[in-house]
Design a protein around this nucleic acid. Structure first.
Length: 669
DNA sequence: AGCGTATGCATTTTT
DNA sequence: TGCATACGCT
């Protein structure tokens, strides 16, 4: 992101967007047009100039990272001024906040658990045993889609067409009941439940409408139907909001995000004001021209043309490579040559690709050349098994109905509670409709198992009770450390893993516990308070702060949205990869084109594309064609063969390009 | 039979 | 990289 800019340097549409308060406002902000600046300045304006109470303003983002960045920038703008009560958070954390406060109205305890997708997967797996994994995954996928589309289990069942949909609709009902029994919600519920709550309880809705009087929504094109509905209910008839988005950067359609929400906005709010931010402060004119050319092939909602006064800039280059191995080698060589020539930093370079597995070859070649790199994505900190182990304990402390947490905690580390005991406990709990934890204490259950089975189980439950008592009062860090010692987690790790793996895992646990302890101290929160929010926090944010060391960035196109780099290598620009073959089949090439657009507009000064003539897949080589998007970029593109050091052979590359255009000219729809 | 390694294979993944 | 499947070893 660009650095904060003094107010006088705002351009007229930016200024208009900030000062406009007469009604609902939609800001169509092109890539690099300063949308974050508009949102943050508007918050500052509302507080400082309009005298609005910060507690009545909420800015909603999609990622923790975006929220944090916005917090920081607002903090800088309002130095000394008060931001007390100001809400800047993600959709999901706003949902949590609403649910914690209004849990009773929905039949939930305020200390409900939040299940991540792995937890939810195992519920579906238990529900429909003897079904293969792929099917379970599609069931989970379908149910999530229904929730985002606000379909109830009944509706889903009624509308189910295929066999798998019928199966999924059946699972949906049981799944919802199971979650409720565990006093747990999934990520989709964090939006769906507040929305339903507002629909069914006008009083509660009014209360929140009164509290959050002005709403600012970032990345509006990424909202799904349910989020849109929640926003509508939250803003109410006053409709005081600013939505900021870019239909050309809508790349999450496959996850339920619906650009229709952008189209629907003028319909639902006839007095909607529309402002376009078209001046780009990031890229050279050449890069923007190519981006405009590509995106011009999409059916447009709103006509928008980016421009910049940063000069024409370097030529966009394209490299045809013999195969993917050669592509990786050539990109790394070109990167190093460019770095040497310009005396730039590694962190000025990004290698962007369509899908994760493409990164692998680039990683090897970067490593071979001793080039430092960081990769976005990968398993998030909270998905790591050792962290999930610890979190299971925390979840159980806060919510003893959380059966999955109970099972994980009671069996990790092993303490003499095995499968048979748990099965008996599960059966008993199922008959009585109580949680595993509660069942363990019942006389009726005690009669069904032996003393040897019961004893360790009760010891565990009593241990949890004791820790819970402490967790309500004493400092979070201390309680957590004592608990880890008491369960012997470190020793267990070193018993079950190789020393190196155990070192890393225990290191992660310690990092996590220190981080929690620090957070507990800073916000004066107990361990149980903290547990309520950790499901939503991503420690990658923290890693980003730390990792300001000089390294080449490797990233998927999706993960690169919102970021910018001086030099971008966009690799694997081939038919079947970008656009991805399955998108071509499912007729969603427009979203792939937006992905290409996002990729192009990440570059500030230098854009380099590459594609292969052949690609190794398995042990066979398959022929490839350059992406249709190459031709769509226009002819301001300097294409050369793949030989790393050689001068481009102008004659052949021209001929090749002509061929390419002929080839693509006919096949386009 | 069961476990452990080898090999093959991938859409994208904010919460 | 990470997961799933298959094969081979014990």
């Amino acid at each position: 992101m660009s650095s904060p800019v003094p107010l006088h340097s705002l351009n007229p549409p930016q200024r208009e967007a900030i000062y406009y308060l007469d009604g609902p406002l939609l800001v169509l902000a092109g890539a690099g047009s300063g949308k974050t600046r508009v949102i943050t300045q508007k918050i500052a304006y509302l507080i400082q100039e309009c005298g609005m109470n910060p507690a009545n303003i909420a800015a909603i983002t999609f990622t923790n990272k975006a929220a944090r960045e916005m917090q920081e920038r607002v903090g800088q703008l309002l130095q000394g001024g008060s931001t007390a009560g100001l809400t800047i958070c993600t959709f999901h954390s706003l949902g949590v906040r609403i649910l914690r406060e209004e849990a009773k109205a929905l039949g939930y305890k305020p200390k409900f658990s939040i299940f991540d997708s792995t937890d939810c997967y195992s519920i579906f797996a238990d529900l429909s045993a003897s079904v293969d994994k792929a099917t379970i995954r599609s069931i989970q996928w379908l149910v999530s889609g229904w929730k985002n589309a606000m379909k109830s289990p009944d509706q889903a069942a009624a509308e189910a067409k295929s066999e798998i949909e019928v199966l999924a609709a059946k699972a949906y009902r049981d799944y919802a009941a199971t979650l409720k029994a565990y006093q747990a919600v999934d990520f989709d519920d964090l939006i769906l439940l507040p929305m339903q709550l507002f629909q069914e309880h006008p009083k509660i809705r009014d209360k929140w409408q009164n509290r959050l009087r002005y709403l600012l929504v970032d990345e509006y094109q990424d909202t799904n139907a349910c989020q849109y509905q929640l926003l509508k209910l939250l803003t109410g008839p006053r409709a005081m909001f600013t939505a900021v988005g870019d239909d050309d950067q809508a790349i999450y359609g496959w996850r339920g995000a619906d650009v229709e929400n952008l189209r629907g906005l003028p319909r639902d709010y006839p007095n909607l004001k529309l402002i376009m931010l078209e001046q780009n402060y990031r890229s050279t004119a050449r890069i923007l021209q190519a981006a405009n050319n590509v995106i011009g092939n999409n059916e447009k909602l709103f006509e928008k043309k980016l421009w910049s006064d940063l000069g024409h800039g370097e030529a966009i280059r394209g490299t045809v490579c013999r195969d993917n191995e050669h592509e990786a080698e050539s990109v790394v060589m070109k990167l190093l040559a460019d770095k040497f020539e310009k005396r730039s930093k590694f962190s000025d370079y990004a290698i962007l690709y369509r899908s994760n597995h493409q990164a692998r070859l680039f990683e090897t070649h970067l490593r071979n050349n001793r080039v430092p790199y960081v990769m976005s994505g990968g398993t998030s900190f909270f998905e790591k098994s050792e962290i999930k182990d610890v979190i299971a304990y925390l979840r159980l402390l806060a919510n003893q109905d959380d059966d999955p947490a109970f099972i994980r905690a009671v069996t990790t580390p092993k303490r003499g509670v095995g499968g048979t005991t748990l099965e008996a406990l599960g059966t008993y709990a199922g008959e009585r409709h109580i949680s595993l934890f509660a069942a363990a204490f019942e006389e009726g259950f005690a009669q069904r198992v032996s003393h040897r089975q019961l004893e360790p189980l009760l010891q565990f439950c009593e241990f949890i009770n004791r820790v819970e008592q402490r967790a309500l009062r004493e400092p979070a860090g201390e309680v957590l450390n004592d608990m880890l010692t008491a369960i012997g987690y470190e020793a267990w790790l070193y018993d079950h893993e190789e020393t190196r793996a155990a070192d890393s895992k225990w290191g992660n646990v310690r990092e996590f516990s220190q981080w929690l302890a620090g957070k507990g101290e800073k916000d004066e929160k107990t361990l149980i308070d903290l547990t309520q929010t950790i499901a939503l926090i991503n420690m990658l944010d923290k890693q980003n702060e730390d990792s300001e060391f000089d390294a080449v960035q490797l990233s998927t196109l999706h993960a690169a949205k919102g970021l910018e780099y001086k030099n971008v290598f966009l690799v694997g620009v081939e038919e079947g990869i970008l656009p991805h073959s399955s998108s071509v089949e499912s007729g969603t090439v427009e979203e792939e084109r937006r992905l290409m657009y996002v990729g192009i507009t990440r570059a500030r000064q230098h854009l380099h594309l590459s594609w292969c003539e052949k690609r190794k897949q398995g042990k066979e080589m398959y022929p490839c064609e350059p992406s249709r998007f190459i031709a769509e970029m226009g002819n301001d593109l300097r294409i050369s063969g793949g030989k790393a050091a050689a001068e481009p052979d102008k004659a052949t590359s021209k001929a090749r390009f002509a061929n390419l255009r002929n080839m693509l000219g006919s096949g386009e729809s």
